[in-house]
Design a protein around this nucleic acid. Structure first.
Lengths: 266, 266
DNA sequence: TCCTCTGTTCGGCATCGCCGAACGCACGCA
DNA sequence: TGCGTGCGTTCGGCGATGCCGAACAGAGGA
């Protein structure tokens, strides 16, 4: 019998355990063994064994009352360990702080993960307003400046794949046409920064520039986020902001060991 | 052949995958297949299969240059999903904000995880100073007020086990004597709050109160952290602070569905 | 009180993944 | 430039391992 996923060398039980974790993480509600078994198409007893093992490892917790399962605390610790080990993030801490205090806006750093940008660092706007931390959040690449800045410098096969992939609309202004998006990417390589104007959240804009690693490949991007009135009034970002973002991103790239190749971003 | 861990019903490959993730998360450096195989006492080929599966699931990433492995982005997403699903955390957001702005100090919320308190929420002190986010961090229970507040109300067997466990000293003031610690816990149940005076970090103190769930069991704790001069001058916390912490923790407990039983905390 | 739905256990078969040795490649020393 | 050593990776074959499906126990609800 040939399993649905025919990739060679995949360890079945580990892959299934990962699918269980994903299922528990996607829905907001906790799930029971039966529900998981139905969703994943795996025998109930099998799910039980996997879930029990995950519970012993604290990847999953069981609600004492209902017997249903939810994600466990070990995942938070491992997620934090991922951040600690993350080179772009750790090197970006000082640069992001510096940029935030210089322009008085919030700063985000993200890496491409599948077809979304994963936020790995977030500095609040330096005022007392209530802001929610976005580290760990994922945003479709085509709906944020971080994504467009990164993908613009990605190698052709990957870029084309991303342009061909699904491009969901988050707001009425999200660019969902691959050709328009491709033109945007050309503009990014020309200008050295990417702009996003209410394409993810109405009223919010973002200015981002790519960050390169020691191989000259895009490692991610760094950008300013904030109200559209300040960042992209009538679609035009203030020159002081775009200059600051590009400058900090170049400094961070150098920090990552990027050589002259990275200069194409400027 | 009997494996070292003789627990019934544990799925070997999943448990090994978890150990690999822990190993990658504990050290700051990335690890290779050979190193993992030696550390975990598993054949190299076996490690490779596990790691490849984890890589497909984006639980680990391979460094293209060195071939070594590090933790992957899926863990950050799952860690965030854990926080989103976490009842104590989500219910504490508003209460913690309110407490922070009322007393002008940083607020932390933690849950007991093994023998450490895992920070699940952290509100910065409402000023412009640079502060690092501690969500995801783990602190030995006996070295923080959050831990003492929670353990004081834990059931005897668990409390005794924690008191019997290793009690490492983090500073010269960490309480490492089980008997003194037990007296501290009695004081907590008497006063309704726990105090920590430079037992984890020199110069820092914490005032915390327990939070109870709908079963009247401690779900975690909520507390103020800050410089010892403001929180515990000569070991005496300001009455306004202790009152505020207890009041907010009681409100949060009610929010969690705690009935009268939780009143023993006040 | 019954019925249905949970999560859980268990026996047995064959599948699946473990081990150990061999491979190819990159690096560093000579 | 050659060798030697270390890495990550592949592969074949045995057998332990973890799958499945059916039966179990207990909690709710009608």
């Amino acid at each position: 019998m040939i399993p649905p996923d025919t990739r060679r060398g995949t360890i079945q039980s580990v892959e299934r355990a990962a699918r269980i974790l994903r299922a528990l993480g996607s829905g907001t509600a906790r799930m029971g063994v039966t529900e998981l078994a139905e969703d994943l198409g795996i025998a109930k007893g099998t799910i039980h064994g996997l879930v029990r093992t995950l519970e012993q490892q604290e990847f999953v917790e069981q609600d004492p009352g209902t017997g249903k399962y939810r994600l466990g605390p070990a995942l938070l610790q491992l997620g934090n360990a991922f951040l600690d080990n993350h080179e772009l993030r750790s090197r970006s801490l000082l640069w992001a702080d510096s940029l935030a205090s210089r322009v008085g806006e919030a700063v985000r750093v993200g890496v491409l993960n599948g077809s979304t940008m994963l936020i790995v660092h977030h500095v609040f706007r330096p005022d007392d307003s209530v802001q929610i931390l976005e580290v760990g959040a994922s945003i479709p690449w085509h709906a944020c400046a971080l994504g467009k800045a990164t993908v613009a410098y990605e190698e052709s096969p990957r870029r084309d794949a991303l342009l061909a992939g699904p491009l969901p609309a988050l707001t009425g202004r999200t660019i969902t046409d691959p050709e328009r998006l491709r033109e945007e990417l050309v503009a990014v390589t020309r200008d050295g920064f990417a702009l996003e104007d209410q394409e993810a959240i109405v009223g919010e804009a973002e200015i981002a520039a790519p960050v390169f690693d020691h191989r000259g490949m895009p490692a991610g991007a760094l950008g300013l986020v904030g109200p559209v009135e300040r960042l992209a009034l009538e679609g035009h970002p203030p020159a002081a902001f775009t200059a600051a973002v590009r400058e900090i991103a170049r400094g961070l790239s150098r920090d990552m060991g990027a050589g002259r190749l990275a200069a194409r971003g400027g």
